[in-house]
Design a protein around this nucleic acid. Structure first.
Length: 271
DNA sequence: AGTTGAACCTGAACGC
DNA sequence: TGCGTTCAGGTTCAAC
């Protein structure tokens, strides 16, 4: 489900109900997620939340004892509900707050994760992550150097978390369309100029998507229950056989690196 | 070292 | 209506 804008939206939605409050306890109903839920979470009692943050698509709850690291996987979501709210199917975990509310995590496919670490810098899942797409570290020179000698398809390259984090299937497709670059173009053949265009476009697309509360394809909801509004602006993603917004040519689709890809064969050239 | 694809899981949508 | 098949917003890890 969620790419960076959806995770950022979720974080902003839940923060006012968590930040500065105390976690009374964490209830786990289904520990079998992408990885087993860290046992430390169940042991937590009455710990103060110091701050909330995000790294890549991970939510981070900084407590006085350590860090809760959450991931929404493909189908996960979080919402804020009262303590006595009835439990729905796939409501796997609750973080109970001392303000009458709790953060409830629902995830049908269970590709998400809830883990514990006392040292974020040593956290194993963070070690190989590339820069944040909205940071200055993600710039034309970086992308140019990183892409040298890579034979991978450009789209696969951009979705690689070791290159840049947070760019999932929707925004990779949308960004490449806006750049006029073919998703199968070999990453190693990019020019400096093209790298600059890609960097600028990704930043613009992600920023705009965050402003609109993310993309709702079918089941993503902001924590307040509203959908994301970016879906109304999707130019190519899931629009196979529809006319290209720029030239009217039928949008094509192609599986690249196990993920469906959408592009305009006229506007997006391999060269 | 770089690249590819199997695996994790449920449910909605589609074809017959 | 029912049943089998395909596909889905992510990511790791094993095997070429």
């Amino acid at each position: 489900m969620p790419e960076l804008p959806e995770v950022e939206t979720a974080l902003r939605g839940v923060s006012p109900y968590l930040d500065g409050f105390t976690i009374e306890k964490i209830t786990v109903r289904q520990p079998k997620l992408r990885w087993a839920v860290s046992p430390e979470l169940v042991e937590l009692k009455n710990v103060k939340i110091l701050a909330l943050g995000r790294r890549a698509k991970y939510l981070i709850i900084h407590t006085e004892k350590g860090y809760i690291v959450g991931h929404l996987g493909m189908s996960g979501s979080v919402r804020i509900v009262p303590h006595d709210s009835p439990i729905d199917k796939h409501d796997h975990l609750d973080i109970v707050i001392n303000n009458g509310k709790l953060l409830r995590y629902n995830d049908p496919r269970r590709f998400g994760a809830w883990l514990w670490t006392e040292d974020l810098d040593e956290f194993h899942l963070f070690l190989k992550l590339g820069p944040e797409p909205l940071s200055d570290e993600f710039n034309a020179e970086y992308l140019f150097k990183k892409s040298r000698k890579k034979t991978t398809a450009l789209k696969t390259f951009l979705m690689d978390n070791a290159v840049v984090v947070g760019v999932g299937n929707i925004y990779a497709n949308e960004s490449l369309f806006l750049c006029g670059l073919h998703p199968l173009k070999s990453a190693g053949n990019l020019t400096r100029k093209q790298c600059g265009l890609i960097v600028d476009t990704i930043k613009t697309v992600l920023t705009k998507a965050i402003e609109q509360g993310g993309t709702t394809l079918k089941d993503f909801l902001q924590p307040d229950g509203r959908p994301g509004y970016f879906a109304q602006e999707l130019l190519v993603y899931s629009n196979k056989d529809k006319p290209c917004p720029k030239c009217g040519t039928k949008i094509e689709s192609l599986v690249i690196g196990q993920r469906n890809s959408y592009f305009c064969p006229h506007c997006q050239k391999k060269k």
